[in-house]
Nucleic acid binder design. Structure first.
Length: 297
DNA sequence: AGGCAGGCTTTTA
DNA sequence: TAAAAGCCTGCC
Protein backbone atom coordinates (compact mmCIF):
# COMPACT_ATOMS: atom_id res chain seq x y z
CA UNK A 1 0.00 0.00 0.00
CA UNK A 2 1.51 3.30 -1.09
CA UNK A 3 1.85 5.95 1.57
CA UNK A 4 1.46 8.64 -1.03
CA UNK A 5 -1.23 11.09 -0.05
CA UNK A 6 -3.62 12.10 -2.80
CA UNK A 7 -5.88 15.05 -2.25
CA UNK A 8 -9.25 14.57 -3.84
CA UNK A 9 -12.02 16.99 -4.75
CA UNK A 10 -15.50 16.23 -6.00
CA UNK A 11 -18.45 18.48 -6.70
CA UNK A 12 -21.78 16.77 -6.15
CA UNK A 13 -25.35 17.80 -6.60
CA UNK A 14 -27.36 16.78 -3.52
CA UNK A 15 -31.07 16.74 -4.30
CA UNK A 16 -32.14 15.75 -0.80
CA UNK A 17 -32.06 17.74 2.45
CA UNK A 18 -28.49 18.80 3.25
CA UNK A 19 -27.89 21.98 5.22
CA UNK A 20 -24.38 22.17 6.63
CA UNK A 21 -25.10 24.86 9.21
CA UNK A 22 -28.16 23.07 10.56
CA UNK A 23 -26.34 19.77 10.88
CA UNK A 24 -23.36 21.48 12.52
CA UNK A 25 -25.66 23.06 15.11
CA UNK A 26 -27.91 20.05 15.61
CA UNK A 27 -26.11 18.67 18.64
CA UNK A 28 -25.38 15.27 17.09
CA UNK A 29 -21.80 16.05 16.03
CA UNK A 30 -19.22 18.03 17.98
CA UNK A 31 -16.28 18.20 15.59
CA UNK A 32 -17.73 20.21 12.71
CA UNK A 33 -16.05 23.60 12.58
CA UNK A 34 -16.50 26.52 10.24
CA UNK A 35 -13.53 26.88 7.92
CA UNK A 36 -12.10 30.25 6.95
CA UNK A 37 -13.95 30.47 3.66
CA UNK A 38 -17.72 31.06 3.72
CA UNK A 39 -20.22 28.16 3.71
CA UNK A 40 -17.40 25.70 4.35
CA UNK A 41 -17.03 23.27 7.23
CA UNK A 42 -14.12 21.11 8.29
CA UNK A 43 -15.47 17.83 9.57
CA UNK A 44 -13.45 15.46 11.73
CA UNK A 45 -15.01 12.01 12.06
CA UNK A 46 -13.10 9.28 13.80
CA UNK A 47 -9.59 9.38 12.37
CA UNK A 48 -10.56 11.16 9.14
CA UNK A 49 -11.23 14.66 7.97
CA UNK A 50 -13.20 16.17 5.09
CA UNK A 51 -14.07 19.71 3.99
CA UNK A 52 -17.54 20.37 2.61
CA UNK A 53 -18.48 23.66 0.94
CA UNK A 54 -21.99 24.70 0.01
CA UNK A 55 -21.66 26.10 -3.53
CA UNK A 56 -25.35 27.01 -3.75
CA UNK A 57 -28.22 25.60 -5.78
CA UNK A 58 -27.79 22.15 -4.29
CA UNK A 59 -24.15 21.78 -5.30
CA UNK A 60 -21.50 20.86 -2.74
CA UNK A 61 -17.73 20.52 -2.93
CA UNK A 62 -16.09 17.70 -0.99
CA UNK A 63 -12.34 17.78 -0.32
CA UNK A 64 -10.59 14.93 1.42
CA UNK A 65 -7.34 13.08 1.58
CA UNK A 66 -7.44 9.68 -0.07
CA UNK A 67 -4.94 8.32 2.39
CA UNK A 68 -6.19 7.26 5.74
CA UNK A 69 -3.21 6.09 7.75
CA UNK A 70 -5.47 4.01 9.92
CA UNK A 71 -7.31 2.33 7.05
CA UNK A 72 -4.92 2.59 4.12
CA UNK A 73 -5.78 4.02 0.75
CA UNK A 74 -9.42 3.75 -0.21
CA UNK A 75 -9.50 1.96 -3.57
CA UNK A 76 -11.79 3.36 -6.23
CA UNK A 77 -13.77 0.13 -6.11
CA UNK A 78 -14.97 1.21 -2.67
CA UNK A 79 -16.15 4.59 -3.79
CA UNK A 80 -19.77 5.45 -4.21
CA UNK A 81 -19.97 7.61 -7.30
CA UNK A 82 -17.29 10.24 -6.96
CA UNK A 83 -16.60 10.06 -3.22
CA UNK A 84 -15.50 7.14 -1.03
CA UNK A 85 -18.34 5.00 0.29
CA UNK A 86 -17.06 5.75 3.78
CA UNK A 87 -18.03 9.41 3.41
CA UNK A 88 -21.15 8.73 1.39
CA UNK A 89 -22.40 6.58 4.26
CA UNK A 90 -21.32 9.11 6.89
CA UNK A 91 -23.69 11.68 5.40
CA UNK A 92 -26.39 9.00 5.04
CA UNK A 93 -26.95 9.93 1.41
CA UNK A 94 -28.85 6.70 0.79
CA UNK A 95 -31.74 7.93 2.92
CA UNK A 96 -34.42 10.21 1.47
CA UNK A 97 -35.16 12.76 4.17
CA UNK A 98 -37.66 14.68 2.06
CA UNK A 99 -39.96 11.69 1.92
CA UNK A 100 -39.58 11.10 5.64
CA UNK A 101 -40.57 14.72 6.30
CA UNK A 102 -43.48 14.34 3.91
CA UNK A 103 -45.00 11.66 6.14
CA UNK A 104 -45.86 14.33 8.70
CA UNK A 105 -49.45 15.50 8.38
CA UNK A 106 -49.61 19.26 9.10
CA UNK A 107 -53.24 19.00 10.15
CA UNK A 108 -52.69 16.05 12.45
CA UNK A 109 -49.45 17.29 14.06
CA UNK A 110 -48.90 20.98 13.33
CA UNK A 111 -46.11 21.34 15.90
CA UNK A 112 -43.96 18.58 14.45
CA UNK A 113 -44.73 19.85 10.97
CA UNK A 114 -43.44 23.33 11.84
CA UNK A 115 -40.38 21.82 13.49
CA UNK A 116 -39.65 19.72 10.42
CA UNK A 117 -40.00 22.71 8.11
CA UNK A 118 -37.63 24.71 10.31
CA UNK A 119 -35.26 21.75 10.49
CA UNK A 120 -35.29 20.96 6.80
CA UNK A 121 -31.72 20.12 5.86
CA UNK A 122 -30.91 18.09 8.95
CA UNK A 123 -29.73 14.54 8.43
CA UNK A 124 -28.80 11.85 10.97
CA UNK A 125 -25.13 11.21 10.33
CA UNK A 126 -23.78 7.67 10.53
CA UNK A 127 -21.08 8.27 13.12
CA UNK A 128 -18.77 5.88 14.90
CA UNK A 129 -20.44 4.22 17.92
CA UNK A 130 -17.34 4.46 20.12
CA UNK A 131 -16.98 8.16 19.37
CA UNK A 132 -20.67 8.69 20.12
CA UNK A 133 -20.45 6.73 23.36
CA UNK A 134 -17.67 8.91 24.72
CA UNK A 135 -19.10 12.13 23.28
CA UNK A 136 -22.50 11.65 24.89
CA UNK A 137 -21.07 10.50 28.22
CA UNK A 138 -19.25 13.83 28.19
CA UNK A 139 -22.43 15.65 27.14
CA UNK A 140 -24.31 15.01 30.35
CA UNK A 141 -25.19 18.17 32.25
CA UNK A 142 -23.16 20.27 29.79
CA UNK A 143 -24.11 22.61 27.00
CA UNK A 144 -22.85 22.14 23.47
CA UNK A 145 -19.87 24.54 23.51
CA UNK A 146 -18.64 22.83 26.66
CA UNK A 147 -19.00 19.41 25.07
CA UNK A 148 -16.92 20.53 22.07
CA UNK A 149 -14.16 21.86 24.31
CA UNK A 150 -13.92 18.65 26.29
CA UNK A 151 -13.84 16.43 23.21
CA UNK A 152 -11.20 18.57 21.56
CA UNK A 153 -9.10 18.47 24.72
CA UNK A 154 -9.39 14.69 24.84
CA UNK A 155 -8.39 14.38 21.19
CA UNK A 156 -5.36 16.60 21.74
CA UNK A 157 -4.41 14.64 24.81
CA UNK A 158 -4.43 11.16 23.31
CA UNK A 159 -5.67 11.25 19.71
CA UNK A 160 -3.34 10.75 16.78
CA UNK A 161 -1.98 13.99 15.33
CA UNK A 162 -2.64 14.22 11.61
CA UNK A 163 -2.55 16.55 8.66
CA UNK A 164 -5.67 17.12 6.58
CA UNK A 165 -5.94 17.59 2.80
CA UNK A 166 -5.28 21.32 3.14
CA UNK A 167 -2.15 20.80 5.20
CA UNK A 168 -3.81 21.77 8.49
CA UNK A 169 -3.23 19.70 11.58
CA UNK A 170 -5.98 17.91 13.45
CA UNK A 171 -6.30 15.21 16.07
CA UNK A 172 -8.13 11.97 15.41
CA UNK A 173 -10.74 10.87 17.88
CA UNK A 174 -8.81 8.73 20.39
CA UNK A 175 -8.99 4.94 20.25
CA UNK A 176 -10.34 2.95 23.22
CA UNK A 177 -6.77 1.79 23.86
CA UNK A 178 -5.49 5.35 24.10
CA UNK A 179 -8.26 6.43 26.47
CA UNK A 180 -8.03 3.35 28.68
CA UNK A 181 -4.30 3.95 29.09
CA UNK A 182 -4.89 7.37 30.68
CA UNK A 183 -4.62 7.95 34.39
CA UNK A 184 -7.22 10.05 36.15
CA UNK A 185 -4.57 12.74 36.63
CA UNK A 186 -3.85 12.92 32.89
CA UNK A 187 -7.55 13.05 32.13
CA UNK A 188 -8.08 15.86 34.63
CA UNK A 189 -6.66 18.36 32.12
CA UNK A 190 -9.71 17.75 29.93
CA UNK A 191 -11.96 19.22 32.65
CA UNK A 192 -14.44 16.40 32.42
CA UNK A 193 -15.30 16.69 36.10
CA UNK A 194 -17.19 13.72 37.47
CA UNK A 195 -17.59 12.36 33.92
CA UNK A 196 -13.92 11.46 33.74
CA UNK A 197 -14.37 8.20 35.59
CA UNK A 198 -17.29 7.32 33.30
CA UNK A 199 -15.11 7.84 30.22
CA UNK A 200 -12.42 5.57 31.61
CA UNK A 201 -14.98 2.92 32.54
CA UNK A 202 -16.45 3.00 29.03
CA UNK A 203 -13.03 2.63 27.42
CA UNK A 204 -12.25 -0.35 29.63
CA UNK A 205 -15.61 -1.93 28.89
CA UNK A 206 -14.95 -1.70 25.16
CA UNK A 207 -11.41 -3.00 25.53
CA UNK A 208 -12.23 -5.99 27.70
CA UNK A 209 -15.15 -6.80 25.37
CA UNK A 210 -17.76 -6.59 28.12
CA UNK A 211 -19.52 -4.43 25.52
CA UNK A 212 -19.30 -5.07 21.77
CA UNK A 213 -20.52 -1.91 20.06
CA UNK A 214 -20.40 -3.26 16.51
CA UNK A 215 -22.60 -6.22 17.41
CA UNK A 216 -25.29 -3.76 18.51
CA UNK A 217 -25.79 -2.74 14.89
CA UNK A 218 -27.75 -5.98 14.55
CA UNK A 219 -29.51 -5.90 17.91
CA UNK A 220 -33.07 -4.90 18.75
CA UNK A 221 -33.65 -1.44 20.13
CA UNK A 222 -34.47 -2.67 23.62
CA UNK A 223 -31.48 -5.00 23.84
CA UNK A 224 -29.24 -2.18 22.60
CA UNK A 225 -30.39 0.17 25.34
CA UNK A 226 -29.99 -2.53 27.98
CA UNK A 227 -26.47 -3.32 26.82
CA UNK A 228 -25.41 0.32 26.73
CA UNK A 229 -26.92 1.26 30.10
CA UNK A 230 -24.87 -1.59 31.58
CA UNK A 231 -21.85 0.68 31.17
CA UNK A 232 -21.02 2.74 34.26
CA UNK A 233 -22.05 6.34 33.58
CA UNK A 234 -24.47 5.53 30.76
CA UNK A 235 -28.15 6.07 31.47
CA UNK A 236 -31.19 5.81 29.23
CA UNK A 237 -30.68 9.21 27.60
CA UNK A 238 -27.05 8.68 26.63
CA UNK A 239 -27.83 5.14 25.48
CA UNK A 240 -30.49 6.47 23.14
CA UNK A 241 -28.07 9.05 21.72
CA UNK A 242 -25.51 6.33 21.00
CA UNK A 243 -28.22 4.19 19.45
CA UNK A 244 -29.47 7.01 17.22
CA UNK A 245 -26.25 8.74 16.23
CA UNK A 246 -23.72 5.90 16.49
CA UNK A 247 -25.72 2.83 15.51
CA UNK A 248 -28.19 4.57 13.19
CA UNK A 249 -31.21 3.12 14.93
CA UNK A 250 -33.33 5.97 13.61
CA UNK A 251 -36.29 5.00 15.76
CA UNK A 252 -34.34 5.75 18.97
CA UNK A 253 -35.77 8.75 20.81
CA UNK A 254 -33.44 10.44 23.31
CA UNK A 255 -35.37 12.45 25.89
CA UNK A 256 -33.33 15.30 27.33
CA UNK A 257 -34.45 18.48 29.07
CA UNK A 258 -35.51 20.13 25.79
CA UNK A 259 -37.51 17.17 24.54
CA UNK A 260 -39.13 16.67 27.93
CA UNK A 261 -40.42 20.25 27.88
CA UNK A 262 -41.83 19.76 24.40
CA UNK A 263 -43.54 16.52 25.35
CA UNK A 264 -45.12 18.16 28.38
CA UNK A 265 -46.28 21.23 26.47
CA UNK A 266 -47.24 19.83 23.08
CA UNK A 267 -47.96 16.13 23.64
CA UNK A 268 -49.85 15.90 26.95
CA UNK A 269 -51.32 12.58 25.83
CA UNK A 270 -47.88 11.21 25.04
CA UNK A 271 -45.82 11.29 21.86
CA UNK A 272 -47.34 9.02 19.18
CA UNK A 273 -44.37 6.71 18.75
CA UNK A 274 -46.42 4.09 16.89
CA UNK A 275 -47.54 6.58 14.26
CA UNK A 276 -43.97 7.72 13.59
CA UNK A 277 -42.25 4.35 13.74
CA UNK A 278 -39.57 3.73 12.44
CA UNK A 279 -38.46 7.36 12.08
CA UNK A 280 -38.96 8.67 15.62
CA UNK A 281 -35.29 9.58 15.97
CA UNK A 282 -35.34 11.81 12.91
CA UNK A 283 -38.45 13.58 14.16
CA UNK A 284 -36.85 13.89 17.58
CA UNK A 285 -34.00 15.75 15.94
CA UNK A 286 -36.39 18.24 14.34
CA UNK A 287 -38.10 18.80 17.69
CA UNK A 288 -34.77 19.26 19.49
CA UNK A 289 -33.43 21.78 16.99
CA UNK A 290 -36.74 23.66 16.94
CA UNK A 291 -36.87 23.99 20.72
CA UNK A 292 -33.29 25.21 20.94
CA UNK A 293 -33.74 27.74 18.18
CA UNK A 294 -36.97 29.06 19.71
CA UNK A 295 -35.11 29.55 23.00
CA UNK A 296 -32.24 31.27 21.23
CA UNK A 297 -34.74 33.68 19.67
C1' DA B 1 -39.25 -3.42 44.47
C1' DG B 2 -38.96 0.98 42.43
C1' DG B 3 -39.32 5.99 42.90
C1' DC B 4 -37.14 10.23 44.48
C1' DA B 5 -33.86 13.78 46.47
C1' DG B 6 -29.29 15.27 46.53
C1' DG B 7 -24.75 15.62 44.79
C1' DC B 8 -21.54 15.95 41.26
C1' DT B 9 -17.33 19.23 37.99
C1' DT B 10 -17.09 22.82 34.96
C1' DT B 11 -18.61 26.13 31.61
C1' DT B 12 -21.82 29.20 29.59
C1' DA B 13 -24.99 33.02 29.31
C1' DT C 1 -26.49 32.86 39.68
C1' DA C 2 -28.97 29.36 37.11
C1' DA C 3 -28.85 26.14 33.74
C1' DA C 4 -26.60 22.85 30.83
C1' DA C 5 -28.57 16.57 24.91
C1' DG C 6 -27.74 13.20 33.14
C1' DC C 7 -26.26 9.63 36.11
C1' DC C 8 -25.11 7.45 40.57
C1' DT C 9 -25.98 6.68 45.31
C1' DG C 10 -28.61 6.30 49.26
C1' DC C 11 -32.98 6.47 51.41
C1' DC C 12 -37.70 5.25 51.90
Amino acid sequence: MLKKCTNCTADLRIEDDFDLAKIADSGQCFRWERAAQPACYRIIAGADCIYVTDLGEGRFRFEWSELSERDGCVPKSEWNGSIPKHWFDYFDFDTDYRSIRAKIDPAEDPYLWRASEAGRGIRILRQDPWEMLISFIISQNKNIPGIRRCIEALARLCGERRTDCRGEEYYAFPTPEAVAALSEEELAGCKLGYRGKYVLAAARAVLDASIDLDSLLETSEQETIEALTGIYGVGVKVANCVSLFGLHHIDAFPVDVWIRRILEAEYPGGFPFERYHPYCGIYQQYLFAYARNQAAG
